[in-house]
Design a binder for these strands. Structure first.
Lengths: 146, 146
DNA sequence: CTTGACCTTATAGCAACTATAAGGTGCATC
DNA sequence: GATGCACCTTATAGTTGCTATAAGGTCAAG
């Protein structure tokens, strides 16, 4: 193993991820097939580290592995127009905003649910259980108004 | 099949879910084991519908099946104190708020990323790809200031 | 008694890993 | 050269909450 070369574990450490994840990315066609030592150990170089970091940054932005695969393909075609990259990011942003809206209304509902129970009673009288047993989501009159 | 009784498909329709989901909940120990017709068809009654609706409402609130299992157990012990129910809901609300915060910062980051690309260039000059290739999340100077 | 809609089970797949088992390699030390 | 230990290899199963498929059986109507 020469300088500037990494085993899978060293690459993992350098990118703050795990060896299993790198091998998984290889099986999924995201990481390139590396060369091997005579004994079969994977050998990575700095461009593999770049590629891994690119993947991890995309993941950090919430892109699926499928999306990352596509982004990698686009990034490799340096002369292609970047409208597709732009569109992919925009679409992903839309999806994130959608999930955000869902989670916000979920938070509001849960907060309402949470305030139903003062905390000192028994299950039989618990307004939370009552709320979960009736269809509070669809009723016009709320299950409880704390 | 008498009135007030349901096949799995009828129960599914009544609860606006699917038969496979009900059978799945049975395997996971959420729905009770139903009686069967001589031919082996599951027969449900209205309390099974209540239980299914309870499960689906919990799911709507984002509880995991594991949580729902626990909530069902608590709901069955009508004389137990409901502090545990209260705590479970509060903990879940905390988790939802955490995910919400993560998603909000993700949205901000993605929006910044999105504005990096004007849309007319080629991949080689694309600020988005550049941003994904550099570690913009950890750099003090932003990858681009559109 | 046939048709057709429904039911039954078992099994595999999805995403993105994580965990486990059983064994092999590389390198330093004795 | 032998030993020890950290690390590597593969294959396989598990996670969550379903969904899809296959191959077959049942029910009720006509």
């Amino acid at each position: 193993m020469q300088s500037g070369e990494y085993t899978v574990g060293q690459l993992a450490t350098a990118a703050r991820t795990k060896a299993v994840t790198i091998r998984y990315y290889e099986r999924q066609g995201l990481m390139r097939i590396p060369t091997r030592t005579p004994g079969g150990y994977r050998i990575y170089r700095s461009d593999d580290l770049d590629r891994l970091l690119f993947i991890l940054r995309c993941r950090h932005f919430g892109f699926s592995l499928e999306n990352v695969r596509e982004l990698l393909q686009l990034a490799d075609q340096t002369d292609a127009p970047c409208a597709e990259v732009d569109a992919k990011v925009a679409r992903h942003l839309d999806e994130v905003r959608e999930r955000l809206a869902e989670l916000q209304s979920l938070e509001a509902e849960l907060q309402r649910l949470s305030r139903c129970c003062a905390g000192g009673g028994i299950v039989k009288d618990c307004r939370i259980i009552e709320s979960l047993s009736r269809d509070i989501g669809n009723s016009k009159t709320p299950a409880c108004t704390p």
